[in-house]
């Protein structure tokens, strides 16, 4: 894959330097059989260094979680080699099995098969709480 020329896919830009692999894992990009490129420590005008992830031949990935992981990320959607959309992913209302509740008094601490569900309770401050015990969760 020529990393500069993506035909139909996403360029996930302005990732905090060093965080690209974490995002790669959260998005489960390892499970894709299309091309994925990680660029580490690219030069950035704003922050000095940044990471970039490029995904080609795939427009179906759910990127909602990026808003939770790092709201400063920019996503470029590319169709037929052109940027058709540029956006900051929004905070998702609900996170399922993304972060685990760490409250030792929570039912999830003894029933391992329960899905870990966190809900956005304060968009302004990006506060997520466990659906079951309502404890605030941190990444």
């Amino acid at each position: 894959m020529n990393i500069d020329s993506i035909k139909n896919g996403y360029v996930i830009d302005h990732i905090e330097a060093g965080k690209s692999f974490e995002i790669y894992n959260y998005l489960k990009l390892g499970e894709l059989d299309t091309s994925v490129a990680i660029i580490k420590n690219a030069k950035s005008n704003k922050t000095g260094k940044k990471d970039i992830i490029k995904i080609d031949e795939n427009l179906d990935i759910n990127l909602d979680i990026l808003g939770y992981l790092d709201p400063k990320i920019t996503v470029n959607k590319i169709k037929d080699g052109k940027i058709v959309e540029k956006f900051h992913p929004e905070l998702p209302e609900k996170l399922v099995n993304v972060v685990k509740c760490k409250n030792p008094r929570c039912i999830t601490s003894i029933e391992q098969e329960l899905p870990h569900i966190c809900e956005l309770t304060d968009r302004e401050h990006a506060v997520y709480r466990c659906k079951y015990c309502e404890e605030q969760v941190n990444r």
């Binding site: 409250n103 008094r105 929570c106 039912i107 999830t108 601490s109 003894i110 029933e111 329960l114 466990c130 659906k131 079951y132 015990c133 309502e134 404890e135």
Partner: peptide
């Protein structure tokens, strides 16, 4: 009644 928080919601 349950000692763990959220059990009745489950």
């Amino acid at each position: 009644r349950h000692p763990k928080e959220g059990a009745p919601l489950v």
